[in-house]
């Protein structure tokens, strides 16, 4: 048994190995290293991270980061420009919501009309916990019955009707 577990653990650890070993690969001296597509990879990374949480307005449920639509490209360019101009992420978000509204945000802001959205899951869990507690109290009070009496009686009743 212990072997099984050890093997499972080993598999987990071994499985991680490839992601750790990042060695510089040897390359043909003549080959040229490919340039990143973005002019400024740092800004690009920031832009993508931000755009992943934004909606491509003209697509059906696609993020601004992934969309190939023209408007999405324009908006990405706009975000890049704003970032280059030294705007912070919240400022860029404000810039976009001032033009396109909250619809552009995949993470809806927390405000009165979205309170239910954000607190709903907590309420559900609370209601569930209450239901769990009430059921348990009631069930604990139920006197212990022979475990299968009811089931067997029901089956017998059924089978009698069947004949």
């Amino acid at each position: 048994m212990m072997d099984r577990i050890r093997n499972a653990m080993l598999a987990l650890v071994l499985a991680c190995a490839p992601c750790v070993a990042i060695g510089a690969a040897t390359n043909d001296a003549a080959a040229v290293e490919a340039a990143p597509n973005a002019e400024n990879p740092e800004i690009e990374q920031r832009m993508v991270r931000l755009a992943e949480d934004l909606r491509c307005l003209v697509c059906q449920n696609e993020s601004l980061a992934g969309s190939k639509a023209e408007l999405a490209e324009d908006l990405r360019r706009e975000i890049r420009d704003q970032m280059k101009a030294g705007k912070s992420d919240p400022e860029v978000i404000d810039y976009l919501t001032a033009r396109y509204g909250d619809f552009v945000l995949y993470r809806p802001p927390f405000k009165p009309v979205t309170w239910l959205l954000w607190l709903g899951p907590v309420l559900f869990l609370g209601a569930g916990a209450a239901a769990w507690y009430v059921t348990l109290r009631r069930r604990r009070a139920v006197a212990a019955e022979p475990p299968d009496a009811e089931k067997l009686a029901a089956a017998a009743r059924l089978l009698k009707e069947d004949q």
Partner: peptide, 27 residues
Amino acid sequence: GAVLLGTLYPLFMDAMGLGKISVGPPY
């Protein structure tokens, strides 16, 4: 319930005239 709420919330808001929002992966 949370998935249902997130999926339908934009519809609720729109139907009650409270504006349009998007609920996406971050939520």
